[in-house]
Amino acid sequence: MKNFILKTLIATAIFAGIVAGFWLVNRWGSRWTISPDKQIVLLGHSHAERAWDDTVIPGMANFAESGESYFYTYPKGRRLIDRNRGIEIVLIEFSNSQVIAEIDEWVRADDHISYRLPVYAPVMDWPSLRLLFDLNSEAVIGTLPLVSKNNAVMLMRGLDYIPVIGGFHPLDETIDSAALASAATAPARKREGMATFGLDYLDRLVAHARSKRVEVMFVRTPVHRHAPELADEELFQSVRKARYGDVEFLDFGRFPLADTDFADTGHLNRSGATKFSEWIASLIESGLLEADDRQHIIDNSLARLSNR
């Protein structure tokens, strides 16, 4: 019987060793290198993912991804900064929907864990993994096979993580008039409470970028004037001023767009993204990021656009 138990333990150890080995190779050997001509990195969620066309905007790499909490953006941003010394500026989408308490579900909900953890687990630090385990141990355990499978898949793809960590993905649909009418007449619903885990990790991302002498700016992407999240403007501004008063905030939210430039009230479609990105590109080319009074330049440009 001892022989049986010994062999079972050996088999289990080999199995665990293979799984752990794949994980360690992904942790230490994965490639996060971006093109050296990209000095600006954009992080955030779907607002940024759908709007910032990095093929149009010079020097920018868009790594925003739909439904991504700052909790998961942190290990991605940290690794990108660490592995790419050429990055000078990190733009982080900071908008109304990211400060409300509901957004913490993007950290701990089953579907978010099973979607994010397989990609980010190898580059997450132990305290973050521990926090996630405390928040939803069942989902974390249930996702371990997916993490391991993804490690193996990434190994077969040469450990290049750049194609799987976000990017510009435009939407082709256009919001219909019924949805707009519905959004216009829907009562404004202010949401209570401030996000905790997400903002904690935003703090950490900002601190890490600064420790590496990378400039951090928050940006706000336009949403439709009937977007429900605009009801949270008061909370948003209070969080921004109280907690992130020392981080430059570039508000592009008032960029003029037609209804046909939106896929839904929260997201630009391809047409809107093109208009918005070309405008951003022109601002950057005219020296926006090197200027001292950036928001003033943006506001002036927006005023000119509105007067047309």
Partner: peptide, 19 residues
């Protein structure tokens, strides 16, 4: 032989459907 068993075990771990 052990390689076969490990391959089956890894298939179970990686390709297991939703419980």
């Amino acid at each position: 032989r052990w390689g076969l068993y490990l391959a089956i075990a890894l298939s179970i771990f990686w390709f297991g459907g939703r419980e």
